[in-house]
Design a binder for these strands. Structure first.
Lengths: 268, 268
DNA sequence: ACCTGAACACCGTTCAAGT
DNA sequence: ACCTGAACACCGTTCAAGT
């Protein structure tokens, strides 16, 4: 039923997915030749994976010749012998909406929402500002496309929990991870892809017989909770403390929902 | 202990408080002579009070000669014989930080956060833009002051619930009401006055023996929940549906917290 | 027809010139 | 000393002028 209910293709392993994301950042010019890619430690922290997995990410990119380890510095884009392959400098790929959106996401990720202007984005892409308007109606629509693209990143790799609670928790944690990765996202409005995620999340509860109105309210409450914690995160304060508060509050919210679901559905 | 624990002065009745707010809007120039003040129905809806109470609000202002009922139109600022008393036109009161902040709040309430610019605010106040900077360091600080002023509006009129759950629910609903009244507020960051509200909210739980770390996480989770629902509200969609979802989610969250508090404190 | 440079109507804020 | 006009470095977007 839900758009995410039956993944069209098997989800890639996390390290491959993250490697693909870094590859996209390099391709979009967000990380340039000679600049450092995130360290193993940074990757592990940013995506919430083990350092061993993070190490595999960099191995993949090194094996491709896209990055190389520079002792005492870190892992940088390109090899000692020249710029990275795949996009010879000065050959500007034809501008597409997708490329614009991905570059905008990268720009906002790195420099913050305030730094995302149509003019700065155009400069990043090496095109005149007005060129963007042939692919995107305006900045508002661009931000909506960015949010949709971010939510469409499939990060639900493991098999989907069958129970309503496991499914809802997985969706909430996925949403949280997206907000951690894209600090501008919580302020961007919920895109259609977010509705898809919630549809996926609520499918077991719906099957269990929870009435549609309660399903809708549950989805709104959980989504709102995650988003509220994310905007608080964007305020600036201690991220670690909020991570703990997020997990705590989510557990309490799910506990409370469990009581309700018990009372309002057939049984186990 | 909390700043709101022992109110310095007895809280005014709701209709007096709302009358004061409308009076401030008129004084600040947000509602000008000849323009309509909110109708009984609008007041009842905006502040979540009965229409009978809303009627008393307008009675107060009418008795003061500040507004008058115009049949077929509504209640408008001023009397049939001239402009409202209290601020003769052309006599600009001396600019103060407080006046700037209150006018900014009124401007953002009516025209939205996007319409709040230093230049527009200065125009509203009838001063050159740079005059604002002698009272406020910059726009960011102004918004922070606005948020603090909004949170400092005391709306917790009834006597404070003694139980942890009633207190927390009252604080959450108060915060929700603030966000309903000031749609820009959820996007403005949590000001010091919000921490005061949470301190007040969590005092009974703390007295009950809930450990400080759990108290902090609970406060962050509830505040985040309310704020997340409020930013979703600001997205634009059906406010009535979100009101219901807010109440639903809050009840579930408090239920889940109840289980936790039961297990982690002494007893009743 | 397609593309885009110049222009318009804004911003927040600096700073030097006014009183 | 206090105040503020002009200016600076931005914005998003319109539109007419270029190819």
């Amino acid at each position: 039923m839900g758009v995410l209910e039956q993944p069209a293709a098997p989800a890639p392993a996390p390290y491959l997915r993250i490697a693909a994301e870094l590859r996209a950042r390099i391709a979009s010019g967000e990380i340039r030749a000679g600049e450092k890619v995130p360290s193993v430690r940074q990757i592990a922290q940013e995506w919430g994976i083990a350092t061993a997995t993070a190490g595999k990410v960099l191995s993949v990119l090194r094996a491709e010749g896209l990055v190389s380890a520079v002792p005492g510095v870190g892992t940088v884009v390109g090899t000692a012998t020249g710029p990275p392959p795949g996009r010879p400098d000065g050959a500007p790929r034809t501008l597409t909406r997708d490329h614009i959106v991905r570059t905008a996401v990268a720009l906002a990720d790195v420099h913050g929402a305030a730094a995302l202007s149509m003019r700065a984005l155009a400069a990043e892409l090496g095109v005149p500002p007005m060129a963007l308007y042939r692919h995107v109606p305006g900045k508002g629509e661009l931000v909506a496309l960015m949010a949709d693209a971010a939510f469409a990143e499939c990060g639900l790799t493991g098999r989907a929990p069958a129970g309503w609670r496991g499914r809802l928790e997985a969706a909430a944690r996925h949403q949280w991870a997206l907000y951690r990765r894209h600090p501008w996202l919580a302020g961007a409005g919920l895109p259609p892809a977010a509705a898809g995620l919630m549809e996926w999340a609520m499918a077991p509860a719906l099957r269990r017989g929870l009435e549609p109105a309660a399903v809708a309210r549950t989805a709104a409450a959980v989504t709102g909770y995650v988003r509220g914690m994310a905007v608080s995160l964007a305020d600036g304060p201690d991220a670690a403390a909020l991570d703990a508060a997020f997990a705590f509050g989510l557990a309490r919210l799910l506990d409370g929902l469990a009581v309700y679901v018990e009372q309002h559905t057939g049984g186990t």
